[in-house]
Design a protein around this nucleic acid. Sequence first.
RNA 1: GGAGCGGUAGCUCAGCCGGUAGAGCAGCGGACUUUUAAUCCGUUGGUCAUGAGUUCGAAUCUCAUCCGCUCCA
Length: 500
Amino acid sequence: MSENNQEIIVDENRLIAERRQKLAKLRENGNPFPNDFKPKDYSDELHAKYNQFSKEELAEKSIGAVIAGRMMLKRVMGKAAFATLNDAKGKIQAYISKEKIGEDTYESFKHYDLGDILGISGTLMKTKTGELSIDATEVRLISKNLRPLPEKFHGLSDMEQRYRQRYLDLIINDTSKETFIKRSKIIQVIRDTLVNQDYLEVETPMMHTIPGGATAKPFVTHHNALDMPLFLRVAPELYLKRLIVGGLNRVFEINRNFRNEGLSARHNPEFTMIELYESYADYNRMMEITEELVRSSAKASVGSLVFEYQGKEVNLENSFDRLTIVEAILKYNTHLTIEQLNDKEFLKAEIKKLTREVPKTDSLAVLQLQLFEENTEGQLWNPTFILDHPMETSPLARQSDTNPAITERFELFVVGRELANGYSELNDPEDQAARFKQQVEQKDAGDEEAMHYDADYIRALEYGMPPTGGLGIGIDRLVMLLTDSASIRDVIFFPHMRPE
RNA sequence: GGAGCGGUAGCUCAGCCGGUAGAGCAGCGGACUUUUAAUCCGUUGGUCAUGAGUUCGAAUCUCAUCCGCUCCA
C-alpha cells in the first residue's frame, strides 16, 4: 500500500443517491455518456445572427440549429417545456414539446436534472415574448449530472467553495467566467504587442540553484539524484539577462514566480509576471512600453481607457505621471517641505510615527522611500511612475549618471498598488559584483530576503552585456485592475488554500 | 503572527439573552402546450464546522481547535 493512499472523501447525500439511481436506469437503456453528438452552433452566434428576425420570418425560414450545453433552468408544463442551456459562449432557450419529440423522449426529459448536459437539435423560433429559442426535434442526454447545482437565483456566493471548486463557480457565475476570459485576452494582447515589436518569447528555469532576481524568500525543494537543494524561482530576471548577453536582443517571458510569503488579497504564493528585456533601451523606453502594454490590455479587456475600479474611476487616457519619490511625497502630502525631506532625523521621526518602528537605515534615499511607502503610495490612484529609487534597494539597476545615490529605476503605481517595476539594467560586471557582495553582507547580518552572490551571472556580464532596459509587470494585479476584482484570488483559477 | 466577522438542508439564508430546527430554491409525487427565478397542490431532506465545558436541558452561553473573509503587522 502506498503511503499516499488517501482516504476517499465520502460526500454523498440523498439527492446524489437519487441521481445515481436515475443514472443506473439510464445505463440499462444505453450509454448515458455518449460521445457521438456534435454541436454545430454556439448560442451567442445564433443570437447575433437571428435575433433580428421576427417570429413570422423565422417560422418561414425554418433554420436548423444544433447545440450542446448544460441545462441551467427548466420549466415543464403539461405537454411542453422550456429549458435554458449554457454553452461556452452564452445561453439559449429550447422549447421542448411532446408533439415534436415524442412521448418517450418527453417523459425522459422530464426527469433530466438541472446540471445535466444535453444535446438539442431543432429549428429556430421566437416565443410570443420574442425570445429566440430552439424548437427541439431531438433532445439527448450527453452527460449526467450527479451533484445538484447551487441555487438558480442566488447562485454560489460562498467564497471558500468558489475558490476550492472553481468549476462550480464557472458554471454558475457569469462574471467569474468573464474575468478569466479577460485574463486570457490581456495575456494574449501583451504577447501580440511584443511579438510585433520583434520580441522573442522564451522560457527560463523555474528551479534555480541560486535564488535570484528579486529580494524575496524562496520555496526550497530537493533534487534526489543530485542530492542538492533547488529553489523555485522568485524571478526570471538573471536568466533573461543572460539571454541578452547571448545576443537575443529582445526577450520576454510570461510565467509563474514563487515567493514564500504570507497570503492576502494581493498575494498568492505563486503568481504570474511578465518580464521583458530590450537591448540598447533604457528605463525611459521601458516606461513607454509599460504605458503601451497597460493601455492595450485595457482596450482588449474593458474596451475603454476609462473604467471603474471598486467604485472609483481610473483614467488611462493621459500619459502617466512621472514623479521622483520626493516629488510624489510633496505632491500628496502638502504639509511637508523639501527641507524636511532632506533631513534624516525628521524622516526617521516621521516614519516612526507612522509605523511605530525606528528605521534601521541611515541612507537619506532609503528613508525617503520608506516614508513614501507609508504616506504616499496608497494615494496614487491614477497611474503614476515613481522614479529615483535608492541604490541600496535596487541591486540590479544601473546607477544614475548624475546622482550616485539613486538608480535609473521606476515603479508604476495604480489604485494605490505597485503594478510594474523597471530599470536601466546594470551591465557593469564589477559594479554588479560589488552590489552582490553588499547583498551578501546584508544576508549575513540577518536579512533573509537579501540576494545571493551569483558568480555565473557575473561571469556572463564579464562577456559584455549591451546597455539594456528591463521591465516586469504583475499580470494578476493588472487583471485585478481591469476586471474590477478586489482580491487576487478572483483572478487566479485555483488560488492557494489550506487543505480542507 | 494579531484583531474583527463568519461556518445551520445540495444552494441562498432565518433562528442565537438556553426548552433538541425553519423558509425559499433544488429534489420527489401530481396539475398545466409559449415559460422567463414559470405557476398551483402535496411531500422528503439536518453529526446546527469539530471537540470539550456550564446546565435538568446547548444551534444558542464558555473555552479550545479547524476552515474562510476583511483589516493590521
